[in-house]
Nucleic acid binder design. Structure first.
Lengths: 221, 221
DNA sequence: CAGTTTCCCTAATACTATTAAGTTATACAG
DNA sequence: CTGTATAACTTAATAGTATTAGGGAAACTG
């Protein structure tokens, strides 16, 4: 044998199997036998590709987050204004989460229980991802679009906290509704606190929520 | 034997041991033998008090959250104005987290990985706790303190998201700084978006952060 | 004091992650 | 084409770990 292609293929099969099983049954309740069986291998063979079950848990989201970092700059390219960039960041990120819910589940639900989470590549890469928010907020302060006395680190905390809250709830509720329901309204409410006084708020979106209010309570509350 | 007091005592010893070990080494890496040994028992004896390891994980925070619900009403009693109540809610909750970091760690880091989290008592009790925010926000809307067009559910999402973000980071960073650092500033920035136009913002706090800005980056970023 | 219950123990069981040691079969050097 | 190195995989062993079975002794009950 000695085929590079088949080796990569097998590795991917293991990753995909593990991803599915972790997201489905949880990390603890997934056995190495479950994973290797799903991938069409013996248990021992898996250890030729990964150091073990925990290594597998850490590797999966690492690939995903790295891909996100590569994409972000491109997505923000050409967008004018800090608030428009913040909006794009949120919509873009939630779409990526929607497209890769298994990776997101591992990052936002399972990884944090790991004692070494703060020392992982994933953590430092997510930090890099969020650090773009600081740049955007500073830019907005410079241009006068955002309050001159706004501390970008505090604003980022609010932004990231709200975003992760939305994501986590959606994942815990088994993705039973759209991540984008009411997003416009939550975004506007959050961003209103960041705006400079001259900068206009968004009146259109406000009307919308009145119609969909009850809907929201049912599904997400 | 047959002593009720000693039985309760043993149960508490098990809970305290488990709490410490879970928070310290994580749920997975804590063995039943670790717990029972710390509590001065054999492994089998533990099963007379709890159905198993997972039952123990779910029981611990349940007691804590129930206690919080009992305390909340009393804490808010006599406070005038929705924004003052929101402030009190945040400060009170963070103090309780600071006083019981082991319970908080289990609720905010470990429990969410459990596939049945949404069906637990803890989840529904935390929901009850957060539902007070809706009442407060509606009150503020009625009194004109808060924007008349604010949807309280969206505002709650921002409030809870930001609060849980602050708590989670603090727990992951091994509680190496004070939970209350910069809290005033983050609170004011968040609440600025909720305020009715006539309602005055808080200018005093803003000056403070300029002095402590670098401090914040070092420790929390 | 006899019987029952409470509280706890030792020992067995079944499952799981990981390792050891070996097998198959392909690539490729000569 | 043939022998062999090695990539890719297997079965079987090992060292834990959660949970259960079954029992024993102390203390309470009547």
């Amino acid at each position: 044998m000695g085929n590079k292609v088949s080796k990569e293929n097998t590795k991917n099969r293991i990753i995909e199997s593990a991803k599915k099983l972790f997201a489905d049954k949880g990390y603890q309740k997934t056995t190495v036998m479950d994973i290797s069986r799903q991938a069409g291998l013996s248990e021992a063979a898996l250890y030729d590709y990964f150091q073990g079950k925990e290594d597998l848990l850490l590797t999966i989201p690492d690939l995903w987050v790295l891909e996100l970092i590569g994409d972000l700059k491109e997505q923000l390219f050409g967008i004018k204004g800090a608030i428009n960039k913040l909006r794009k960041f949120l919509w873009w990120y939630l779409r990526r989460v929607e497209e890769a819910p298994l990776d997101a589940k591992i990052v936002y639900l399972f990884l944090k229980t790991n004692a070494n989470f703060m020392k992982t590549e994933v953590y430092s890469n997510v930090k890099t991802l969020y650090s773009y928010l600081i740049e955007i907020l500073e830019e907005g302060r410079g241009s006068g679009e955002i309050k001159s006395d706004l501390n970008p680190y505090f604003a980022r905390d609010i932004f990231v906290g709200t975003m992760e809250h939305i994501i986590t709830r959606w994942l815990l509720k088994d993705r039973s509704y759209s991540l984008f329901d009411n997003l416009e309204e939550v975004f506007n409410l959050m961003i209103d606190g960041f705006r400079a006084n001259g900068s206009e708020p968004v009146p259109v979106a406000r009307k919308l929520f009145e119609e969909r209010k009850t809907d929201y309570e049912d599904k997400q509350d």
